[in-house]
């Protein structure tokens, strides 16, 4: 499903060059639940962004579902992002001034799905994450756990190939964090591919495979 081959990423900061990824190769199977661990500055977030097509690698190739996507145009990347990838962020990253239902509808509307159909899908995604009774609430009326559930519903609603979760429990207390992890386990059990970045070992335990990244290189696999 996901094949990364010898990915490097170098940032230019003024006159200095900073190489964050120094040749990462990774193969992720369809339906896998994988955790990427590593200290801050290790390059795990950069790797995540490259997998999510939010960032492009300096060298190396990235193949998603058999298609080489590492050097697509911005427009094509947006298209792939829209249809094949769902994001869950540490800071929830919900849109302001929108109720839960509208939040979850947005990815579909961007795809050009008709409104009534988008509402239908969004409602079932919100039911799937246990928010059937919070559909018309604004983000600021909801708890952290509920916000993250909206974010997961939003990531799920397009029926993506992979869900990328960047520290999904980082902003939650441990009890709520466990609930969110339970939800991800459930998704995984239903066959969704999940790639999760975390630095908490007990969160990583939910994954079936954990890779450690250190100084831009995969350490153990």
């Amino acid at each position: 499903m996901i094949q990364l081959h010898d990915i490097t990423k170098t940032y230019v900061l003024g006159t200095q060059e900073l190489t964050v990824l120094k040749g990462v190769s990774l193969h992720i199977q369809d339906g896998e639940f994988i955790a990427i661990m590593g200290p801050s500055g290790s390059g795990k977030s950069t790797l995540m962004n490259i997998i999510g097509l939010l960032d492009t690698p300096s060298t190396g190739t990235y193949t998603l579902e058999g298609r080489k996507v590492s050097h697509l145009s911005e427009r094509e990347q947006a298209e792939v992002r829209s249809r094949r990838i769902g994001f869950v962020f540490q800071a929830f990253n919900l849109l302001p001034r929108m109720n839960a239902l509208r939040q979850v509808m947005q990815p579909l509307l961007y795809q050009g799905v008709h409104r009534h159909e988008a509402i239908e899908h969004a409602e079932s995604a919100l039911k799937a994450v246990g928010l059937a009774d919070r559909m018309h609430h604004l983000p600021n009326e909801l708890s952290g756990g509920q916000k993250q559930r909206i974010a997961i519903a939003r990531a799920l609603v397009t029926n993506p190939a992979i869900i990328l979760a960047d520290e999904p429990t980082g902003a939650l207390d441990s009890k709520t964090g466990e609930e969110i992890m339970g939800l991800l386990d459930e998704l995984s059990a239903n066959g969704v591919t999940i790639v999760m970045v975390t630095h908490e070992p007990h969160v990583a335990e939910h994954a079936r495979r954990t890779i450690h990244i250190l100084d831009g290189l995969i350490h153990t696999q």
């Binding site: 911005e74 947006a78 829209s82 994001f87 849109l95 961007y110 939003r154």
Partner: peptide, 16 residues
């Protein structure tokens, strides 16, 4: 800016 980033992450294209 951040809102724009979120929108792009969930599938907004330039013209959107």
């Amino acid at each position: 800016t951040r809102e724009i980033g979120i929108r792009k992450a969930i599938g907004a294209k330039k013209r959107d």
